[in-house]
Design a protein around this nucleic acid. Structure first.
Lengths: 231, 231
DNA sequence: GCTATCCGGCACTAC
DNA sequence: GCTCTCCGGGCGTAC
């Protein structure tokens, strides 16, 4: 699975503190604009925010690196003793075709109850979803790179590093397999975390805008100083 | 002991790369001044560098938090099975008075061969040194806080975080015990690492100076711009 | 649209 | 002389 986690319980507590502090700071700076008819019309917003544009880039993984189970057998996450699980993680990823003949006894897709679960999502994100639903609902099940999480949801490196906060799936770097591994996160989990951190999509947007204008501010100031110096 | 480590072998390799890159950058910027008579006269240097002033602040630890073994018994690091070791680490720190009656069979101080080893140094730094030598040679055995390591030896957070690179000893924060733990490092180990990283004391000094003048540069520039703007 | 450093600087945290 | 964040920026890096 992914690397060891680095945050102690004390760290986690601090995170919570920081989150609240951040929230109150934002609230102070500019009260969150909560639209009451949010559910009615999605309000596509400015396309400036990449977060809005849900692309499917990493929604499907590279089939060449996967083993086809020829029938979507489940693998036995639940029943393995820890020692065996460990061993399994060391091997490339093996599917053990164990399935209960009584259909209801098998883990089901959280959306459609199919038992054709995606084993990678189960393994890396602990999410029970079938291959069909995964593709049909990119707004929940598409994957984001670490960089995207940082830029689009304003998450920090240290948040993204902790597997307990936000699980991730490591894949070979698409540019070159020897480069640093690509880290993939599940959109639904990232959004849940981000909404908690920032206080909802609107607050995140506000923070995004705040930083943008701050950036512009800095730039203007620099430019002005330079002009003055030249005079 | 201290928290889990975060660096994979790949990270370590990267560190080596960075170290070499840094060295060559420094070499390019300003060739290291190697004084040939370094051994002859210590050249106390500018007291500006705190590194030079070896203080004893953390050379002795707070006795009130330690158990007195009433005779300096060794504790049995070597002979414990892993499971037991684990258990021991969870408890406050207990000394098991096991000692071989044949003196030569006991671990000895690396400097004076005494067997009255300091158990904390052994446990946290894997260094066999006796209590006397520890106090007599602060240039080797004094302890540095993490902040000091960062400032005086220009080590980074991620280097200091990895226990495999540089072991550390966690102590309650002296300001308030509930604050973040104080992290202590052994001077000899820190220096060894820093010399490897920077290419020796002179190179470290050079880098230190480089940053100082960079800082000054920035300040001057800012000041100048401001003056121009005011005109 | 890949990632992991580093750096400076700052504000703020822990109670 | 305590430590942990975050932030922005810029550049290197991996081959």
């Amino acid at each position: 699975m992914s690397g060891e986690s680095t945050l102690s319980p004390a760290d986690l507590a601090r995170f919570e503190q920081n989150r609240l502090a951040a929230k109150s700071r934002i609230a102070q700076a500019r009260p969150a604009v909560v639209s009451n008819d949010a559910a009615a019309e999605p309000k596509p917003t400015s396309m400036q925010r990449k977060r809005r544009a849900i692309d499917l880039t990493y929604c499907e993984y590279n089939l060449s690196t996967m083993k086809d189970t020829k029938g979507g057998f489940l693998y036995e996450e639940q029943s393995l003793p820890d020692s065996k699980k460990q061993k399994q993680e060391e091997r490339p990823v093996v599917y053990e075709p164990t399935i209960d003949l009584i259909l209801e006894n098998n883990p089901q897709c959280e959306t459609c109850k199919s038992i054709d679960l995606d084993p990678q999502y189960l393994l890396h994100f602990k999410v029970q979803v079938c291959r069909q639903c995964k593709d049909k609902h990119p707004e929940k099940y598409s994957l984001l790179t670490k960089t995207e999480c940082r830029e689009d949801y304003l998450l920090t490196d240290s948040e993204l590093r902790d597997d307990r906060l936000l699980p991730h799936w490591e894949r070979p770097n698409p540019h070159k397999s020897t480069y640093s591994k690509m880290l993939l996160y599940l959109r639904s989990q990232v959004e849940k975390f981000a909404w908690e951190k920032w206080g909802g999509p609107e607050a995140l947007d506000a923070e995004f805008e705040r930083r943008e204008s701050e950036k512009k501010e800095r730039k203007d100031k620099k430019f002005k100083l330079k002009m003055n110096g030249r005079r």
